[in-house]
Nucleic acid binder design. Structure first.
Length: 660
RNA sequence: GCCCCAGUAGCUCAGUUGGAUAGAGCGCGGCUUUCCUAAAGCUGAGGUCACAGAUUCGAAUUCUGUCUGGGGUACCA
């Protein structure tokens, strides 16, 4: 039910008498919103105050005029004026109940009408590098993108999901090199992906070591410079002790010195640690300049070298299987998986086209696109002739335009790449993709407990599947706590318990991710997200299970579903009205969540709904044998609550269980 | 240096795009179980919305400046 647009349409003719500009009228209509003051109003129109200057009248008089003209008699029980000129609307319980009955009669869509003008979206999300093991950093894009796709589809849009796999980059040079030099044939035959990740880590460690060794002189130099700068700042400050800027400069210099020192010490320590490992040192000596060698392997692959191409073709299916097993477990599907390799043949033409349009120029041996407002250009071809992800991204956008003709393209990618996307969009508009809304749906970095980006560190990778296992076992400990299960009459089978733990555990991970505003960073804390209290998926799943439990009890008491399913819904208690109003807002909430593609709008709504239901069922008994009308009405309300919670969770990619 | 993002309760975070007395969860204090699952509910304490100006009927929200933290910044993605 689109309550907001209905109410706004009633105000529109009244406001239009004063606001002839369509923009001004729309701005005024947008000031009609759900009220935060639930004790005063269900909806409120904050339209009188801004008009006082234009009309030269006090806001209360304007509000009175509006109230006398606007026709809401069928929807509202009362339309009143309060405060400085707020117009407060209280919905009619009868009208509200009628709307809810309509929603209840339509359990699949809950009376949510498909949008009038459906758009085509291409949504790019997840996009892991296939040769590297998936880790926690990948989950945000995957979960947020999946949820946005589901919500847009439910609202009636065409949403095409595309997993832009990193299947063509330097990491393949690494595993190809590793395979040629360090492979363990037995291990590869048994578990190819595990062996490939081992090879990846072996190569990465050597490169890291060699880079660190090469970097130490530079870091030492930087350290000395920082020392010098600090000394200079101190000298200047001594000459002018009252200058506050110099005091600040000293603090900055001191901090920089500390940072330089930290970096140097870190590099030294890591070199020192590896030096203790004699096998490792032998290997490192046998493969000097490994970074360069890896780049050569990558270049050979890209230029069509038969041996490397064969290896790549042998590796990719294994790597994809591994990644797909994670998606299967998370219940996530993509319409397309056009990886980077798919665009490889298109890249030369992209660069040629950019050169022909004089958008790209040679600079420092590379081919670059210089853009207003940025120091650094977007490089589309390296000195050595290799292409970069920016080139692939342009090709991808061109391909999608041709293939899908989208109205909007969403890129669900870490916010650290925002500058890249700004440049990319700039270039895309210049080459004519002007009819597509391009949007970087950025999200905050997943941080470790130290507050630093959660990255794959060689040796200590937190794999995604083991993380999911941890969440599920954490959920098991809580859900299948023997003490808790003893209190229940129902005896759960082992299979049921496993299913519940899996649903609750995976729900916990997804929900923790979705419930934060996507734009902010979020600290990954396994302990906390597996906690099954407060604003978590488990709480909502539990409330859903409670609704089902009540319906089961009704059935066992002989109250037939057919009867209450068509019985009148009557809202009389305050908590019934609050819950009913909340359920009525489902469609408006979903539309709101997609204005800026924020799934946390949905999680917040579901949490609120679950809490309202909890308050309601504690206060009022649903099954009241001596008042059958009330019982049947409340059964409908309970069922509709359950359906709404289930649908909402479904749109977040989170499942429910009938008992827990 | 330049550019971007953030700063809200002890902690983790919301805050419907400028609306009424700034909200949750966790933690802390108190209360509620003969009753549809107490994984619950009710309730109390806890705030200079980083700071200073500006804009206007009205600012956590917009603008300017300052402070603090994070990220990015020419051939990784």
């Amino acid at each position: 039910m689109r309550v907001l647009s209905l109410i706004r349409s009633r105000f529109s003719p009244v406001l239009a008498t004063w606001l002839t500009e369509p923009n001004a009228l729309n701005a005024a209509l947008e000031r009609i919103v759900p009220s935060r003051e639930s004790n005063l109003a269900d909806y409120q129109a904050n339209v009188a105050m801004p008009l006082q200057k234009k009309l030269g009248k006090p806001p209360l008089a304007i509000a009175e005029e509006i109230v006398s003209k606007v026709d809401l008699s069928d929807i509202c029980e009362s339309v009143t004026i309060a405060g400085q000129g707020y117009v407060n609307l209280r919905l009619s319980p009868t009208w509200l109940a009628n709307c809810l009955m309509q929603a209840h009669a339509d359990p699949d869509r809950l009376a949510v009408a498909p949008v009038a003008t459906a758009k085509t979206y291409v949504i790019d999300y997840s996009s892991p590098n296939v040769a590297k093991p998936m880790h926690v950093g990948h989950i945000r894009s995957t979960v947020i993108g999946d949820s946005i796709t589901k919500i847009l589809r439910f609202l009636g849009h065409k949403a095409i999901s595309d997993n832009h796999l990193g299947d063509w980059g330097t990491q393949f040079g690494m595993i190809i090199y590793g395979y040629k030099n360090f492979r363990d044939d037995v291990a590869f035959a048994q578990a190819p992906v595990a062996e490939l990740s081992r090879l990846y880590r072996v190569v990465q460690r050597i490169i890291g070591f060699q880079d660190a060794v090469a970097n130490i002189p530079k870091l030492e130099l930087a350290f000395e410079k920082a020392q010098q700068k600090l000394a200079e700042s101190k000298a200047k400050s001594a000459a002018a002790p009252q200058d506050k800027k110099l005091v600040k400069e000293i603090a900055t210099s001191a901090r920089q010195l500390e940072e330089a020192n930290d970096e140097l010490e870190k590099a030294k320590a890591s070199v020192e640690e590896s030096s203790q490992d004699s096998d490792f040192m032998v290997r490192s000596k046998q493969h000097p300049d490994l970074g360069q060698r890896v780049l050569k392997e990558t270049a050979k692959l890209h230029s069509g070298d038969a041996e490397n191409l064969n290896l790549w073709e042998a590796f990719v299916p294994n790597c994809k299987d591994e990644i797909h097993s994670v998606y299967t477990r998370l219940n996530i599907q993509f319409d397309h998986e056009f990886g980077e390799s798919y665009y490889h043949d298109m890249l030369p033409a992209i660069v040629e086209d950019l050169l022909a349009r004089s958008l790209a120029v040679q600079s420092g041996g590379a081919i670059c696109v210089f853009l207003d407002g940025y120091e650094a250009p977007m490089i589309v071809q390296k000195q050595d002739g290799a292409y970069l992800y920016s080139t692939t991204d342009i090709a991808t956008a061109v391909f999608r335009e041709r293939e899908f003709a989208p109205d909007a393209s969403l890129y669900v990618v870490d916010h650290r790449q925002s500058e890249h996307f700004q440049k990319l969009f700039d270039v895309l508009r210049k080459i004519g993709l002007i009819h597509t809304e391009l949007k970087h749906v950025e999200f905050g970095t997943v941080l470790g407990e130290d507050g630093k980006p959660f990255k794959t560190r060689s040796g200590t990778v937190v794999g995604l599947s083991s993380m999911l296992d941890e969440a599920v076992s954490g959920a098991w400990d809580v859900v299948c706590d023997p003490e808790r299960l003893q209190k229940s009459d129902y005896v759960f089978t082992e299979a049921e318990k496993r299913h519940i733990a899996e649903t609750v555990g995976l729900g916990a991970i997804k929900y923790a991710d979705l419930s934060h505003n996507r734009t902010s960073n979020y600290v990954f804390d396994m302990k906390k997200m597996v906690q099954l209290q407060g604003n978590t998926a488990a709480y909502i799943q539990y409330m859903y299970a409670r609704t089902r439990s009540i319906l089961r009890n009704a059935e066992s008491e002989g109250i037939e579903t057919d009867k209450w399913n068509s019985a009148p819904l009557v809202l009389s208690e305050t908590l019934e009205l609050s819950l009913g109003l909340q359920l009525l807002r489902f469609e408006d909430m979903l539309n709101q969540s997609m204005v800026e593609y924020l799934p946390n709008v949905v999680t917040e709504y579901l949490y609120e709904t679950a809490k309202l239901f909890a308050s309601f069922y504690v206060q009022h008994k649903v099954l009241t044998p001596d008042a059958m009308d009330t019982t049947m009405s409340r059964l409908r309300l309970t069922d509709l609550t359950g359906l709404t919670l289930r649908k909402g969770l479904e749109l977040l990619g989170i499942g429910v269980v009938e008992r827990m």
